[in-house]
Design a binder for these strands. Structure first.
Length: 110
DNA sequence: ACGCTGACGTAAC
DNA sequence: AGTTACGCCAGCG
């Protein structure tokens, strides 16, 4: 185990995010059963920098805003990647976030 | 070794 | 209904 179980769980869920979809920290946290640990989920994403295959750009806050873009090499990186997948990003926020929202507690349940 | 902060979200006032 | 405070876990000062 390179990361803690919680971190690993987060990574697993994030890696399962389909292309062109996005999810929120809270959704992942809720899926893990610790919705109060949403902060830790975001923090886990920080560790994702060392993990290839972790589309952190697909993970945004519950408002659909690219709050984590600042942590990318280039601020436009996250936004660019999302746009490349068909995600409409305006003012660092996903316009059709509700439409592209991918909830693990729902998608994975089905 | 102790305490603060941090890519959020919910609860309480 | 809006604002403030708190909780979670781990990394870093």
């Amino acid at each position: 185990m390179i990361q803690s179980d919680f971190f690993t769980s987060v990574f697993q869920v994030v890696k399962l995010i389909p292309r062109g979809r996005v999810t929120s920290y809270g959704a992942i946290a809720a899926y893990l059963g610790t919705k109060k640990s949403s902060r830790v989920v975001g923090f886990a994403m920080n560790a994702s920098h060392a993990i290839p295959g972790i589309p952190a750009h697909r993970v945004v806050n519950r408002l659909g805003c690219l709050t984590g873009k600042m942590h990318f090499s280039n601020l436009d990186e996250m936004e660019l990647l999302l746009k490349a997948e068909g995600v409409i990003v305006k003012d660092d926020c996903i316009v059709n976030f509700k439409q592209l929202f991918w909830d693990p507690s729902i998608e994975l349940e089905l």
